[in-house]
C-alpha cells in the first residue's frame, strides 16, 4: 500500500518537476527566470514583469503544448490500462484494437480527398474522431455477435486494424506526394497542433472519463477473476465491459484526433506501471495516467529540444524513451508480471 501511494506521489512530483523544466526549454532565446517571471506576471502583475515577446513565446506557444502533453499522455495511458483490464489482455491498446488506424483513415480521408463530417478547420479532427468511435463500435459489434469474450474482442480489433490500414494505404496510393507526406506526418503524431482550446477539450474529456473509469475500477478488478466470479460478486459484467470500453475509446478519440496517432503510450505505460503498483485498478488507473503524462511530457520535451529548432515526431521519441525502460524492467523482474 505504502509503495503504491509512494509511486503515485513520485509520479506527481516528477510531472511537476518536469513541467518546471519543460517550460524553460525551447528554440527561442529566453532565460528560465524570464519564463517564470512571464508566467507569474499573469497572476501577480504588480510583482513580476513580462514583455510582449515573452508573453507570445510562453503563453501563446509553449505553455499549452506542455499542458497538452500532460493530459494527452494521461488520457492515452488511462485508456490503455482500462482496455487491458477490461479485456484481460496485455496486448490491448488503442493501436491493437484498430482504433488508432481508424483515426488515421479518417484523417487521410480529410487530407487526401478533402471529405469529412465537419468542414473547415476541424475537418481532419472531426474525421479522426468519428472514425475512432466507428471503429470502437465496430470492435464491440463484431465481438457482441458471438458474445463479448476478451479474445474475440482483441481479434476483432486486429481485423479492424488491418481493414483501416488497407484503406489508408489505398488512399495514399491516389494522393499527391505532398498529401501523402502530410498523412505520414499525421500518423507519426505531434503536439505541434496544440492550442488552449484543444487543451481544454482534451483535459475535460480525459479527467471526466478517467474519474468514471476509476469508479469502475473495483468492477474491473472483479472482471479479472473471471466473468462468472464477477457476476457472483454482483457485477454487471456486460455493462462494465461496454461502458468501460466506450469511455476508453472516447478518451482515445478526443486525444488522437488532435495529436495524430501517438503510439506506444497506451500500450506500455500501463505495463510499466503494473510492474510497480501491481494490477489493482484502483491504483493502476491513476498511476498509469500519471506515468503516461510523465512519459509523453518527457518525450515531447526531448522531441522539441534534441535537434532544435527542428521538431522530431513525438511518436518516435516515446518509443525511443519508453522501450529501453520497458525492457530494463522486464530483465530486472524476470518473472511473469501479467
Amino acid at each position: 500500500m505504502k509503495r503504491k501511494v509512494l509511486a503515485l506521489l513520485l509520479s506527481l512530483l516528477g510531472i511537476i518537476l518536469l513541467t518546471g523544466v519543460a517550460v524553460t526549454l525551447g528554440s527561442a532565446h529566453i532565460t528560465p527566470t524570464q519564463v517564470y517571471s512571464c508566467i507569474l506576471a499573469r497572476f501577480f502583475p504588480d510583482h513580476f514583469v513580462t514583455t510582449d515577446f515573452l508573453d507570445t513565446i510562453v503563453w501563446k506557444l509553449r505553455l499549452h503544448r506542455v499542458i497538452l502533453a500532460i493530459f494527452a499522455g494521461m488520457g492515452l495511458a488511462v485508456a490503455g490500462a482500462a482496455m487491458q483490464g477490461i479485456l484481460k489482455n496485455p496486448l490491448a491498446s488503442p493501436f491493437t484494437l484498430g482504433i488508432a488506424s481508424a483515426a488515421s483513415f479518417g484523417a487521410s480521408l480529410a487530407i487526401i480527398l478533402g471529405a469529412g463530417f465537419i468542414g473547415g478547420e476541424y475537418l481532419i479532427v472531426g474525421n479522426a474522431f468519428v472514425f475512432t468511435i466507428i471503429a470502437s463500435l465496430g470492435v464491440y459489434g463484431l465481438a457482441k455477435y458471438r458474445g463479448v469474450s476478451p479474445e474475440t474482442m482483441v481479434l476483432a480489433g486486429i481485423a479492424i486494424m488491418y481493414l483501416f490500414s488497407a484503406m489508408t494505404s489505398s488512399l495514399q496510393y491516389v494522393g499527391h506526394s505532398e498529401q501523402v507526406h502530410e498523412v505520414v506526418f499525421w500518423m507519426m503524431g505531434s503536439l505541434g497542433r496544440s492550442s488552449w482550446d484543444k487543451v481544454g477539450i482534451i483535459a475535460l474529456v480525459t479527467v471526466l472519463c478517467s474519474l468514471i473509469l476509476m469508479r469502475l475500477s473495483w468492477d474491473i478488478n472483479a472482471l479479472g477473476a473471471g466473468d462468472e466470479t464477477a457476476e457472483s460478486l454482483g457485477v454487471n459484467v456486460e455493462l462494465v465491459r461496454v461502458s468501460g470500453m466506450m469511455l476508453a475509446a472516447l478518451i482515445t478519440a478526443s486525444v488522437i484526433c488532435f495529436t495524430g496517432t501517438i503510439g506506444f503510450i497506451g500500450l506500455v505505460a500501463p505495463h510499466i506501471t503494473r510492474m510497480v503498483v501491481s494490477g489493482d485498478h484502483r491504483f493502476l488507473l491513476p498511476a498509469s495516467g500519471l506515468f503516461g503524462a510523465l512519459l509523453l511530457l518527457g518525450a515531447d520535451t526531448m522531441a522539441r529540444t534534441i535537434m532544435a529548432p527542428v521538431i522530431l515526431p513525438v511518436g518516435i521519441m516515446t518509443a525511443f524513451m519508453g522501450v529501453p525502460f520497458f525492457l530494463y524492467l522486464f530483465m530486472k523482474r524476470r518473472k511473469e508480471f501479467w
Binding site: 528554440s27 513565446i57 506557444l61 505541434g192 522539441r304 527542428v310 521538431i311
Partner: peptide
C-alpha cells in the same frame, strides 16, 4: 533534412523579413 518541421518559437525568434508560402495543387 530536406523538409524539417520547425518550432514556431524559432521562427518568431529569427524574425524573418519575408515569408514565402508555396501553395500546392490540391
Amino acid at each position: 533534412g530536406i523538409v524539417p518541421a520547425v518550432d514556431a518559437e524559432w521562427i518568431i525568434d529569427k524574425n524573418p523579413e519575408v515569408i514565402v508560402y508555396s501553395i500546392r495543387p490540391d
